[in-house]
Design a protein around this nucleic acid. Structure first.
Length: 641
DNA sequence: TCCTTGCCAC
């Protein structure tokens, strides 16, 4: 299944390096054990200044002396001391020591000083494979993946053999770049090199490969590598699990987790985080609670990422209060933990609460991250808090020195667009300092859909079709807008365009957990054994609802059909089927929890409001963006979503 | 001397 592809030739690095074999020989090898013991003792105690004083009083420091000092500078994260050590090292004639050069590269990498990493690499003539590997690691960590790949090509060309470490770094380099061009072909090419050099049984390289394919969204390739691995450990299982959880395959993730447990492999905190994500994606509350129990029994409840994942899991499963309880019991909270809570409130449309937690975080001395702003601005958007959102957006660069990224602009466009300030949203896009990507135009198009603005929608979709020619969702949105405006010829045109590109509309799907099992319902569902019973109930309910004021919202049906036919289509929406399935399979008074893969349509929304009143049930629906909590005929979103 | 998995937003 691996095709050997030769990607377009990468440019040779601008500066061409030739390895010059000058063996380094320290000038005066003088054993100085007591001295190094003292240095080591100071370094271990974190007394770097004292160690440096000793350095300047010792006439003959050794390689070991510098190794100790370099490690200590990394540990103390002190760039000024690092520069002092570097200068003295050069003065003492150690500049060409490849061992110390490797250590220096690691140190400057730890200190985020990538220019000095390059400088050390440039100046070292005897480039051992250790030096190359450290250099690649540093560049990869700094996000300069393309540069690593250029050097790797160069390294191959001049005949320097890679070792097993090189492969892990160059693989990671493929996913460590902000380049718009996918480096997947390069990753596949390196995969071929790895096979050719007989590393197909190497545990670490194969695990890295799984992770890299996962990040490219190539679930099939990742699982192919995984099943072919002769030995696996907890890390490789966890990597595969994360791959499923992150790529929209939560059921596969849970299945793999079960398999892992039956192989007597004990999950660690990292494993649990991915499994929790899978539960969150499925809104599988009961499963999630079982995992929480396991986490408590195994003492994993002191690990921050696990707790943050728990907060998010509970919130996404419709149990915001349980998430809040976990959050309240956290002894220490990092920015991720705070962000989890900020976005959880946002998910429920509790904008004011989200802002409150955001401010509380700052009061606690935790600086907001770019994601904090995505979360809080998203919350403002769902709650219609336009003024607050604008103020927060302003404070980003002014108070927190965080410069808005495409995601932040997309939030602002969404905030204004939803609030029917479409022109202002368009102005934001016009004035952006960075290239507005598909997320930004997509937000605008989504808002045009809500407020049925055909002109602006045409503008946005023209740009979107260029940027994302294969995203069916954009075509569907535009067709929706035309349908609502009753421009049936235009609807037909868009549909033809969709067909001509071989694209298909993502079909609606809802799922619901009944007695710890997850059931999915699709608009056209033949698999579910109860389907006839479900359809009958939906029909019965709709007739009764009609007597209670339900008017089917046939505007959203994308076909120019008779009203009756449109109504029939509306009744087949997966969310209504899920509501009926929930009513049939749960006991009286029990809350019905449903998730769906698309935005909730207006008709299902008003239908469910009435059902909640008529059947006296609380119904919680999570759509692609947020929660709707239906109670006694009203929805928590206040019909603003 | 250097290697593998994870939390928060879309």
């Amino acid at each position: 299944m691996w095709t050997l592809q030769t990607p377009p030739c990468l440019p040779v690095p601008s500066c061409s390096y030739r390895p010059i074999s000058i063996a380094f020989r320290p000038s005066k090898p003088k054993p100085s054990n007591n001295y190094n013991d003292s240095i080591q003792s100071f370094c271990q105690k974190g007394q770097l200044k004292e160690a440096l004083q000793l350095l300047f009083h010792e006439p003959n420091p050794t390689q070991r002396t510098y190794e100790l000092l370099i490690l200590s500078c990394s540990h103390k994260r002190s760039l000024s001391d690092a520069l002092t050590v570097h200068r003295k090292l050069i003065d003492d004639g150690f500049e060409q020591d490849p061992f110390l050069a490797t250590k220096l590269i690691n140190m400057f990498s730890d200190l985020d000083s990538i220019d000095r990493v390059r400088q050390v690499f440039d100046k070292t003539f005897n480039r051992t494979i250790f030096l190359w590997n450290a250099f690649f690691r540093a560049l990869t960590l700094a996000g300069h993946g393309i540069e690593v790949l250029d050097f790797y090509t160069h390294m191959n060309r001049i005949g320097i053999p890679s070792d097993r470490f090189t492969y892990t770094y160059v693989l990671k380099a493929c996913v460590a770049s902000e380049s718009l061009v996918s480096l997947l072909p390069k990753g596949k090419e390196i995969h071929c090199h790895i096979l050719r050099h007989g590393y197909e049984r190497h545990l670490h390289i194969m695990t890295t490969l799984i992770d890299v394919y996962a990040r490219f969204g190539c679930v099939g390739s990742a699982s192919c590598v995984f099943s072919q691995m002769p030995q696996k450990n907890l890390v490789s299982w966890s990597a595969m699990l994360a791959c499923y959880a992150k790529n929209g395959k939560p059921l596969d993730a849970l299945e793999l987790f079960r398999e892992m447990m039956s192989n007597a492999l004990l999950p660690n905190s990292v494993t649990m985080v991915s499994v929790l994500q899978a539960c969150a994606a499925l809104a599988a509350l009961e499963q999630g609670k079982i995992l929480h129990g396991y986490i408590l029994r195994k003492g994993l409840d002191s690990i921050l990422p696990v707790l943050s994942a728990l907060v998010t899991m509970y919130a996404k499963c419709g149990a915001l209060e349980l998430g809040r309880r976990v959050f309240d019991q956290m002894g220490k909270r990092d920015v991720v933990a705070w962000n989890s809570m900020i976005s959880s409130y946002g998910l429920y449309g509790f904008g004011a609460k989200s802002i409150e937690i955001f401010r509380e975080m700052i009061r606690h001395g935790v600086s907001p991250s770019p994601i904090s702003f995505v979360s809080v601005l998203g919350a403002c958007s769902h709650a219609g808090l336009v003024a607050e959102g604008k103020q927060l957006f302003d404070s980003m660069s002014k108070e927190h020195k965080i410069y808005p990224s495409v995601e932040h602009y997309a939030c602002m466009v969404d905030l204004l667009g939803r609030a029917n300030q479409l022109e202002e949203a368009a102005i934001i896009i016009q004035d952006m300092r960075i290239e507005p990507g598909p997320k930004v135009w997509g937000s605008l198009l989504g808002s045009c859909r809500i407020h049925c603005n055909v002109d602006l929608a045409e503008r946005a979709s023209r740009r979107l079709f260029e940027l994302e020619p294969t995203n069916a969702g954009n075509y569907v949105l535009l067709a929706d807008i035309y349908a609502e405006a009753r421009m049936w010829d235009k609807v037909k045109q868009v549909k033809k365009l969709l067909e001509a590109k071989g694209l298909r509309k993502v079909s609606g799907c809802s799922w619901i957990e009944v007695k710890r099992k997850i059931y999915s319902l699709q608009s056209v569902d033949e698999i579910n054994m109860q389907i006839e019973q479900i359809h009958a109930l939906v029909l019965k309910l709709s007739m009764e609802m009609k007597q209670n004021g339900y008017v089917p919202d046939t505007r959203i049906v994308l076909y120019d059909l008779e009203e009756e036919e449109k109504e029939r289509i509306l009744l087949g929406h997966s969310e209504k089927l899920a509501v009926a399935f929930g009513l049939i399979n749960s006991s009286k008074g029990e809350t019905i929890r449903i998730s769906k893969n698309l935005r909730l349509c207006e008709d299902c929304h008003s239908f469910t409001k009435l059902i909640s009143k008529y059947t006296n049930r609380e119904i919680l629906v999570r759509d692609i963006n947020r929660f709707h909590h239906f109670r006694n005929g009203v929805c928590s979103c206040g019909d603003y979503w």
